[in-house]
Amino acid sequence: MDSINVHSLLFLLFAAVACAFAVAVVVTSNVVRMAFYLVVSLGATAGLYFLAGADFVGAMQLMIYVGGTLVLLVFGVMLTAQGPFISMRTRAGEWIIAAVVGSSLLGLLLSTAFRVDAWKPPAEAREQTASVTSSRLGGGLLGYRVDRMEQAAAEQADPTLAKNSQGMSGYLMPFEVISVHLLVVLIAAAYLARPKKRVGPREA
């Protein structure tokens, strides 16, 4: 018997947790428990990112997604969680339709996922060497692509290749756009959630 692949074992663990709690989010009708299951599911997904060698994305997932967005969500849940709204049940007919549509979609996606040869698992596990992802990502944002150095060099040597240049495509522009977008969202959310103006004598 081959020895157990530690990487695979951890993957299966995290994947099982992520999938099981994702399904639990759908199945449960109590909104606070839904939020809790979602937290666990997304936390396990962060584990999957670490396993895939994407340290920075994993840490970001934990910090922004789980630590920021979901806390916000739970906050919203608690603000609106009052007696009748905590558990709102879905009708049985809707469940049946949702189950049929969902399982057919799942079947389609899964059969696609396992059919393409290029996506098959490698014949033997590659040694998982931790890479320094954060500085590479930072460079990528500024247009300095560590992972595309050969391509860029080839384009520099041969100008005909550079026509549809793919080598040093950076992400500075999207980064700026998303920063401004975040600012707009911040102001918009504050505007939407502001208290209604009360008509009446102003307090001194």
Partner: peptide, 17 residues
């Protein structure tokens, strides 16, 4: 458990989610 993990496995998790 013994076989290495491929992209397909990740895609399966993604599909379930």
């Amino acid at each position: 458990l013994t076989e290495p993990i491929g992209i397909s496995h990740y895609l399966a998790v993604g599909a379930v989610m």
